[in-house]
């Protein structure tokens, strides 16, 4: 009986979750740093927050870029019929990366407008 595919590790499944996990990490870092910075001295809140946002967003973007690049590359090599391990998960991951990127952009957007710790 050839109908069943060999059991493969859960990697493909987990990979789908990487992009939204990056969004969540970025989100948590920004939220937590704002909370922490606001308990600290008022003097250099703005700069600390600015750097945090910059670093966190750079890291998150880099993560997404690496993920997407990997997905696109494996798309060129994987046989097109290897569902569900291959293209199906790959394309789902790409769309999730897009949504997560939007999420990250939206999280970052207010930091350009609003000062840290202001009520």
């Amino acid at each position: 009986m050839s109908a069943f595919k060999p059991v493969r590790p859960l990697g493909d499944f987990w990979r789908v979750l990487i992009a939204p996990a990056i969004w969540f990490a970025h989100f948590s870092v920004l939220y937590a740093s704002e909370a922490l910075i606001c308990t600290g001295p008022p003097a250099d809140r703005g700069t600390t927050m600015g750097w945090t946002v910059l670093l966190a967003t750079a890291a998150a973007s880099a993560g997404l870029v690496v993920l997407v690049a990997g997905l696109l590359r494996s798309g060129n090599t994987a046989p097109p019929t290897s569902d569900p391990g291959g293209s199906w998960f790959r394309r789902a991951s790409l769309l999730l990366a897009l949504l997560s990127a939007l999420g990250i952009i939206w999280t970052t957007l207010p930091t350009a407008v609003l000062p840290a710790c202001a009520f």
Partner: peptide, 8 residues
């Protein structure tokens, strides 16, 4: 967000 800013 702009409105929040102007509120501030």
């Amino acid at each position: 967000v702009w409105l929040m800013r102007s509120h501030l």
